[in-house]
Amino acid sequence: MIVFVRFNSSHGFPVEVDSDTSIFQLKEVVAKRQGVPADQLRVIFAGKELRNDWTVQNCDLDQQSIVHIVQRPWRKGQEMNATGGDDPRNAAGGCEREPQSLTRVDLSSSVLPGDSVGLAVILHTDSRKDSPPAGSPAGRSIYNSFYVYCKGPCQRVQPGKLRVQCSTCRQATLTLTQGPSCWDDVLIPNRMSGECQSPHCPGTSAEFFFKCGAHPTSDKETSVALHLIATNSRNITCITCTDVRSPVLVFQCNSRHVICLDCFHLYCVTRLNDRQFVHDPQLGYSLPCVAGCPNSLIKELHHFRILGEEQYNRYQQYGAEECVLQMGGVLCPRPGCGAGLLPEPDQRKVTCEGGNGLGCGFAFCRECKEAYHEGECSAVFEASGTTTQAYRVDERAAEQARWEAASKETIKKTTKPCPRCHVPVEKNGGCMHMKCPQPQCRLEWCWNCGCEWNRVCMGDHWFDV
C-alpha cells in the first residue's frame, strides 16, 4: 500500500509500505531520502505521535493516508518512550493509558441525555464484534464512529474520518494533550489543546475536521460531520418502519427517538411537499423529531443533505422563500418566477423588478396576487391545505425507538455506581478489583462488596467470576 509523507509540512511524497511495516522502518526510509538522522524524526498522525514499535496496521493507516513527519531533536526523557523501550505506560498493571487514536474515538455516547454525564468515556458498548469485510486488514473493525456528507465523488452519507490540525499553522502536526470525549470537544473551536510539532510553531489549540472515509482524499478535501447519525450498535428499532437498520439518525429530543435514513428521507420529502418545515429565527429551515417532541429541531442543517441534490435544492429554495415571508415580504405569483420581494408595508401595487435578471417585471396586487387592478379585489380565496398535519407515529413504536432507553438498560445490566462519587462504572470481565475512572475520584473498590478495596476482598473473592 501507499502512504503519503509530508516532511516538515512540505509537499508530500509517496512511500510504499506493508501492513506489518513498523513506524521506525518508515522513519528509516524517510531519513534516507531526506539525509537526516532517523532518531530525530517524529511521525504524527490523527493528533498522535506514533511509536517506533507500532506497525502501519496498528495505527489504522489506510491506503493513501497522509502522515506528517517532522525533524525535531529529542528532548530529555522522550527518546526512550518513542523507541518502544522502557515506557512506564506499558508496564503490566499500570494505570496510565495511551491517548486514544482519533481513528478509534467514539462519540456516540454523547447523544445520551444530559443526566448521563461521564458515560462518553466510561461506558463502552460490546456491539462492535462484526466481522471485518472481505479485503480489510485482519482485526480491523467495521464499526463506524462518525458519518459525514461527502460532496465529492460519493454525493451521499458516508463513514467519516476525524482529523485534527494546529489552529495556528493549519498543519496536521499537532499532538493532542488528551483525546475528545464528546461532540462539544470536536465542534467547539479551541476547546481542546495540544502541542504543535512543526518547527518554530508555538500553536497549542486544536482544530478538528472530518474527511470522507470511503475514498482517498487530499489535504484540502473536508466534509461536514453529521453528528446525529450513528451506527445502530444498540439495535434500536426505527420509529417509523420498526426495522432494525444501521446507520440511524438520533433526534435530540428527551427520548432520543431513532429513525433509519430511508424513513428520514421520506419524512423530509413529505414535509417538504406540504411546505411544513419549521422556520426558526436562529436555526433556519428545519424539522423536529418525527414524533413531534418539543425542543427537538435539527440544529445542523447539513443533515438535510440526505435528501439528495434535487430535493436539497428545493429545500434551500423553500427556506429562502419562507425567510422572505417571515420578513413581511411577498413572492411573485407569476408561474416560473417566484422571486422574493420586500415592498413597503402599505404598498398595494407590487412590481417584480426586472433588474439584474432576477425579476420578471410582472405587476400584481398584494392582496389577491392577481395582475394589478384598481378598486376592490374580486375574490380572495383562503389558501387550502395549509394546516399542519401531524406525522403519524405509532405510540408503541415510539416507545421502542428510544436510544436513551437502550442506554439505561445497558447501564443497569453492566454497571454499578462507584461507592464514593456514584458514577456508573462498567465491568466487562476481569477481577473484582475496580478503579473509578473519574479523575477527581480514582477510588479503588470491590465490585462484589461495593466497598473500598481491602485485604478481605483480596483474599476471599479477588478473582471470582
Rank of each mutant, 00 (worst) to 15 (best):
F362K: 05
P14N: 03
I236Y: 04
R348Q: 08
P439F: 08
F210P: 01
H200V: 09
K129D: 10
D280G: 06
R191S: 09
L102V: 11
Y143T: 08
L50A: 03
R170Q: 10
R170S: 10
V269W: 03
C169P: 01
N58M: 15
R33V: 04
S65F: 03
F146D: 01
P153V: 12
C352T: 02
N448M: 04
K413R: 12
R455G: 15
D262P: 05
F210C: 02
G308R: 03
D106L: 05
S167W: 04
Q400C: 14
P159K: 09
T415C: 10
P202E: 13
C260T: 01
T204Y: 05
V157T: 05
K427P: 14
E382K: 14
N235D: 09
P439L: 10
L102F: 10
A46W: 05
V15S: 00
C196A: 01
L342G: 04
P153H: 11
E370P: 02
A225V: 10
V111N: 14
H124E: 14
D394G: 05
A406L: 09
C169I: 00
T270G: 04
L249N: 01
R97H: 12
A401R: 02
M192I: 13
P335N: 09
R366H: 07
V67L: 10
Q311C: 05
N273W: 05
R314P: 00
A230P: 02
S193D: 09
L272F: 02
P345Q: 11
S19T: 10
E322H: 05
R163N: 13
C457E: 01
C360K: 03
C418A: 01
G354Y: 11
P417D: 15
L61I: 13
C154V: 00
Y149H: 05
H422G: 09
C449A: 02
C150M: 00
S193N: 10
K48I: 03
V121E: 15
Q63H: 15
E98T: 09
A379G: 12
R75D: 13
L341D: 03
C238Q: 01
A134E: 12
V70S: 02
Y315V: 13
D280M: 11
G328W: 02
E28P: 00
D394L: 05
D464C: 15
G338I: 04
T410W: 09
R140T: 13
R51F: 09
I69F: 05
C449D: 04
A406K: 14
I411W: 09
